[in-house]
Structures are given as C-alpha cells and as structure tokens.
C-alpha cells in the first residue's frame, strides 16, 4: 500500500504502541493486560508497519529471525517454571523477590512476570510469523 499518510502514521505509532504494550505487560498481573495482549499489540503494530512499508521491511525491523524468537519466548516460559524447581519448589511454582528501588518503594519481581514475558515474546513472534508469511506469499 503506497500511502504517505499511512507511512507517516505507522512510523509514529510503532514506538508508541510498543511502549503501550510494555505497560500492558507489566500491569497484567493484577489488572487487565498481560503478556498475551501485549504481544498481540506489538504484533499488530508491526503489521501496521508492514502494511505501510511491505512485509520485507517489517521483518527487517524485527532484527531477529521470528522462528528463533518463538523458541526464545517458549524457553523463557520454561525457565520461569524451572526456577521454582531449582529453588526446591514444585515445577511452575511462583517465586517472588523484593527489591528496594529508589523513589519507587519496593518492587516485587517474580517468576510469573518472567512467564508473562515468555508469553509476550511467543505471541508476538507467532502472530507476526504467520501474518508476514501469508503477506509475503500474496
């Protein structure tokens, strides 16, 4: 699609949507949001970019092979499960660590967040891979 408006808008929207997706990912533990939605949002942002600039350029801005990214996402999820095992808890048990952060109070980071990041990466890579493959085929 050769549209100046779409191309300009896509270039501005892409970083905004990525930031928004990260906010969604981080708030997802207690309120609506999470890895799945966040991943879908990034995927749709990149698809928007692909509509403006073509699927090849969209693959190029991902920098990393999408198949490999699927594997990495799933491995992060698996690692989140195995951390519990390493700490002597059952597989997939949620562990939480607290860090004091200057100006923000205590920050709690846990394996569920890591799992969510895994979901985020997997969903984004799977959706993009499917959509871009179909788009390149056409």
């Amino acid at each position: 699609m050769n549209s100046v408006i779409l191309r300009t808008a896509a270039r501005v929207l892409l970083p905004l949507l990525v930031i928004f997706s990260i906010i969604l990912l981080l708030r997802g533990h207690n309120v609506p949001g999470g890895g799945f939605v966040g991943g879908l949002l990034v995927a749709s942002a990149v698809v928007l970019y692909a509509m403006a600039e073509g699927p090849r350029k969209a693959r190029a801005i991902m920098r990393i092979d999408l198949q490999v990214l699927i594997g990495i996402g799933l491995l992060i999820g698996l690692a989140a499960g195995l951390i519990g095992v390493a700490a002597g808890e059952p597989f997939m048990a949620g562990l939480w660590f607290e860090f004091p952060a200057p100006g923000l109070g205590e920050i709690k980071v846990g394996t569920p967040l890591l799992f969510d990041i895994g979901v985020y990466v997997t969903v984004l890579a799977v959706c993009l891979h499917m959509i871009l493959s179909l788009a390149e085929d056409a």
């Binding site: 092979d65 198949q67 699927i70 491995l75 698996l78």
Partner: peptide
C-alpha cells in the same frame, strides 16, 4: 515431558 520440550525448543532456537 520436560526433556522433549527442552530439546524441541533448543532446536527451534538453533533453527539455522
């Protein structure tokens, strides 16, 4: 399950 899952995922990462 975990053995084959890990192997499968490592193979995906080593796609090339």
């Amino acid at each position: 399950i975990l053995l084959h899952l890990t192997a499968g995922l490592l193979c995906v990462v080593a796609w090339k």
